[in-house]
């Protein structure tokens, strides 16, 4: 029996602000990608989602960096120092540039979209796609470079983040489109065809997300000692209600069944599924950020 007699208290590194930052950039990147389906790739079916998508993408990406500025010790100095003292081995350096360029691109893209200049909208939509993907992919890199934490230090982290970003983006878009169609249009009629297409996309992205989570956890469960301990915490320990119950069962499996089973499919179930997904991904961000720090290092 080993008993701890004395150890000092360590500060928790990343807190809820960082989890929320990941959540907001994720939804922003997801809704941007959906908005480019119509205005970048010319899929006419998604046209009603285009303007909502770009407004949400821009808004969320103005809120998200505020979370970062509240988290760092020196908010104003951090803006200056990130661009003057560059360290090209740090994902955060790239992040500073991406967080500058992506909202500006969103603004330009949205401006041309609302003006009706389709040629320029398409150009900036195409520039925006790699930006949207990297602006969220880099947040996964940030955690993956957190070498000390077994839960974070995996090459899958950027991809897990990207797929969950698109899942939460789709969920949020469906909710907002439903609210807009129901209450803020003249006809008060829901665009059922668009919602059903988005719901199918949502279902298959959740399948992909679950597959990635399975890959991540199964490799974690046979890796080194800390990784095994982390898996135990996630599957049987204190984090399992959050990780298995809310994040994966309520936030992924239930919505997946609701939107992919033809028998259940209706506007009501799609609404429920979208709300569950948006809440589930919020929990996913918290489980990743806090869960990674639950195990002590020394």
């Amino acid at each position: 029996m080993i008993e701890l007699v004395y150890d000092v208290h360590h500060q928790v590194t990343f807190r809820w602000l960082i989890a929320l930052y990941f959540y907001f950039t994720g939804m922003s990147a997801g809704s941007f990608v959906i908005s480019t389906l119509a205005y970048g790739f010319g899929l006419e079916k998604f046209k009603p989602a285009g303007k909502v998508g770009v407004v949400m993408a821009t808004l969320l990406l103005f809120i998200a960096p505020i979370m970062l500025l509240l988290q760092v010790g020196w908010p104003i100095r951090s803006v200056w120092n990130h661009f003057t003292y560059l360290n090209f081995s740090s994902p955060m350096t790239y992040g500073a540039f991406l967080l500058m360029m992506y909202p500006i691109n969103c603004l330009i893209y949205g401006y041309f979209m609302f003006k009706g200049d389709m040629k320029r909208t398409k150009i900036f939509g195409m520039i925006g796609i790699p930006l949207a993907i990297t602006v969220h992919g880099y947040t996964g890199f940030i955690l993956a470079f957190g070498k000390a934490r077994a839960f974070w230090n995996t090459a899958l982290m950027p991809f897990l983040f990207l797929v969950s970003a698109i899942v939460s983006g789709l969920g949020m878009m469906i909710i907002i489109l439903l609210i807009r169609d129901r209450f803020f249009t003249r006809e008060k009629k829901i665009n059922t065809e668009l919602i059903y297409t988005l719901a199918t996309m949502l279902g298959w992205m959740i399948v992909f997300d679950l597959a990635l989570v399975f890959c991540d956890i199964s490799v974690l469960s046979i890796a080194h000692a800390e990784a095994k301990e982390m898996t135990h915490l996630l599957l049987h320990g204190e984090l399992s209600p959050l990780f298995l119950g809310i994040e994966n069962l309520l936030g992924k499996v239930v919505p997946m069944v609701l939107v992919l089973t033809p028998k259940f499919r209706s506007i009501t179930t799609i609404t429920i599924a979208s709300v569950l997904v948006v809440i589930g991904i919020l929990f996913m961000r918290f489980v990743v950020v806090y869960g990674g720090q639950v195990l002590p290092i020394v």
Binding site: Q11, T13, F14, Q71, V72, G73, S78, G146, R149, I297
Partner: peptide, 20 residues
């Protein structure tokens, strides 16, 4: 004078010796 307390080094340090 350069540190902005982003805490990234604290997250990455395998020995947890850093603090704000």
């Amino acid at each position: 004078h350069r540190c902005v307390a982003c805490r990234y080094c604290m997250a990455a340090c395998p020995y947890e010796v850093r603090y704000v």
